[in-house]
Each structure stands twice: as structure tokens, then as C-alpha cells.
Amino acid sequence: MAFNSDTYHANKSARAAYEQIARAKDIKRRAAIGEAYAWEIERISTLVQYARWDMHRSLFYRSLKVSP
């Protein structure tokens, strides 16, 4: 089977999105118990925005069709 770079980039972008969401959730959890720094709390919205961009990029790569 030939290498499909679209699938590779789709999977890579999805993994990046899930990692950023996990980081944001960790910061939010630590903020709830008072262990997060103020600069980390401000980063939550940025991490979520980057995750959304990565997931949109993943969906874009998945929508590309391979011509036979």
C-alpha cells in the first residue's frame, strides 16, 4: 500500500488537537484546586483555539480524495 500523506497529516493534526485539549484540561483542573499559575490560566483559551484549528486541519485532510 502506498504512503498517503493526507492521512498522515490528518492523524498528526488530530493527535496535536487531543494533546492541546489534554493540556488545557490539566491546567483547568489545577486552577480549580489552586495550583496553577496565573499565566497558565490565561493560556487555556489559546490552547483550545489551537486545538480547534488542528482539528479543522485534520478534517480538511480527511476530506481530500485520492485519485486512482
Results as ranks from 00 to 15, higher is better:
M1L: 14
F3L: 01
F3M: 01
N4G: 02
N4M: 02
S5P: 06
S5D: 11
D6V: 07
D6G: 13
T7V: 15
T7W: 03
T7A: 15
Y8N: 03
H9G: 15
A10L: 06
N11K: 07
N11M: 06
K12T: 06
K12P: 08
A14S: 08
A14F: 09
R15N: 08
A16I: 02
A16F: 00
A16E: 00
A16V: 01
A17H: 00
Y18D: 15
E19D: 13
Q20P: 05
Q20W: 04
I21R: 03
A22I: 05
A22L: 07
K25D: 13
K25E: 14
K25T: 11
D26C: 14
D26P: 08
K28V: 02
K28G: 00
K28Q: 01
R29L: 11
R29F: 10
R30Q: 09
R30V: 05
A32C: 06
A32N: 14
A32F: 12
A32M: 14
I33L: 09
I33M: 11
G34N: 10
E35K: 00
A36D: 13
A36M: 13
Y37L: 12
Y37E: 10
A38M: 10
A38Q: 12
A38L: 09
W39Y: 05
W39E: 11
E40Y: 02
I41Q: 06
I41G: 04
I41T: 09
I41M: 08
E42I: 06
E42F: 01
E42H: 02
R43E: 10
R43P: 00
I44T: 02
I44G: 05
I44F: 03
I44W: 01
S45Q: 05
S45E: 04
T46F: 14
T46K: 06
T46I: 10
L47T: 01
V48G: 04
V48A: 07
V48F: 07
Q49C: 10
Q49I: 09
Q49K: 13
Q49E: 11
Q49D: 09
Y50M: 05
Y50I: 14
A51L: 09
A51N: 07
R52C: 08
R52S: 11
R52D: 06
R52L: 06
W53R: 10
W53D: 12
D54C: 05
M55C: 15
M55L: 13
M55K: 12
H56L: 10
H56W: 03
R57Q: 05
R57A: 04
S58A: 12
L59T: 04
Y61E: 15
Y61C: 15
Y61N: 14
R62C: 10
R62W: 06
R62P: 02
R62L: 09
S63V: 15
S63W: 08
L64F: 08
K65Y: 07
V66D: 02
V66P: 04
S67H: 04
S67R: 03
